[in-house]
Structures are given as structure tokens and as C-alpha cells.
Amino acid sequence: MENRKSLLNLSSVDILPNLSIRIPTVGEILENEDSYYSIVSSLTATPFQYMVQLDDMGIDYTKITDYELFKILFPMYAKSNLSILFGDLNTSDFDVYINKQDDSQVIYSPSNDIIIDELAYNDLANIIRKINLLDKVNSKPGNESARKYLLEKERKKQKRNAKKKKEPYLEKMVIALVNTNEFPYDYDSCMDLSIYRFNQSFKQIQHKISFDNTMIGVYAGTVDTSKLSNKDALSWIPNK
């Protein structure tokens, strides 16, 4: 990953010689953003985020790895249209197979002769997270009582959220940014931006607004920079 080109200048990222991840445009995602974010969250999910569903399947979410979860989820999604992420690649025959070299289970497509092993999966999930500004959820319960407690809490949360109407995330972001002075695109031109560029612009604008407001406070004497816990707000170029 370290030697990869900047994603700002790419429309797709190579994971394996014949497997690449597309960086879709904002317009493409807005065609069906529910579906896009559902695919993205599933392909990058950790067992912690799927604790309720795994428990319903009789699987302890602390006992399986990220890749094992991917082996459950990916073959299910692969049957549907994943062209927004995988382009022309026919994903319909991706399934779990035994790798004859080491007897391990891997995701394999006979028609494309592509093996997604744990290494390739990590690469793929990290790229999708990077494109979509997602952080990997590394949380895990520290003991058995915490495991049960978190599971119960999450189950209750999901039950409540199931009744709530889903809010269109990207659409709201587009409206907010297009109507912000710092964003140099209008509704039409913004549709051609790759989601990575769009997300990076959002991140930078958010940082710049925070910087400007902090500086107004500094010049007005209401903000003491020595007491700021986040020193990153003192530069308009973010450190990370």
C-alpha cells in the first residue's frame, strides 16, 4: 500500500493482477447510495460490527477474524451487482474454496481465476476504507461479561434503529458542501468528482473552518492556544 500512487489521481486501484477496486464518482453513488454504503460497510466490517447477526447465526463474534467474516459476507454480496466497486469483473462465482497449496479456506472465482486470500482481503478492505473515509473498528470486549453486555446493548440499538427511517448520507453531504463557500463545485460539477476526492475535500473544508474559527478566537483573545488539546487546529494543513 505504501508504494501506491495517490488515490487523488486514480479511478481504480489494483489489488491483484486481475482484480481492482473502482473509485466511483459521487454521481454514480447517488444513483443508489443505500446499496453502495451497504456493500462498502459489509466488505470492510469487522466481527465487532456484526456481533448481533453473528450471534443469531450461532457464531461468537470474538472467536472469528475479519477475514472469516468476509468469507461469510462476500459470497452473498458477490451474487448481486457489484460493478460500482469491481467494474466489469463478473463476481457471481466468488465463493469459499479450499486452497490446495495449504488447505486453507479462501475466496476464489473459477471463471476469473482470482484468489482473495487474507492478504488480498486486508488490502482490499483497507483501500475501500481509505476511499470512503472509514476507520477500522478495532474494539473488542475485554472479558466475557463485557461480550454479553455489548451484545445485548447492540441488539437493543439495532431493534430501535430498525424502526427509524434511513437518512441519505451522501446527498446531505453534497447539499451541505455545494452550499459552503469553501467548496468550489456546484451540483453538476460535483457529480463527476471521485468519492475519494469528494471525501478529501470535505475533510479539508471541515479542518479549514475549524482552523478559521480557532484563529478568530485567538486574535480576539478568547482562545488560549496553550490550552488547546488539539494543536492540529492551529494549522490549516492537517497533520493526518
Binding site: S139, K140, P141, G142, S145, A146, Y149, L150, K153
Partner: peptide
């Protein structure tokens, strides 16, 4: 009052 706590290694506790 039930709370969720986290240690320095992302381990969660009740």
C-alpha cells in the same frame, strides 16, 4: 448507572 469503558488497547468493559 451502566457504562461502557475502554482501555488503552481498544478492549471494552462493562
Amino acid at each position: 448507572i451502566d457504562v461502557t469503558c475502554q482501555d488503552g488497547c481498544d478492549n471494552l468493559f462493562h
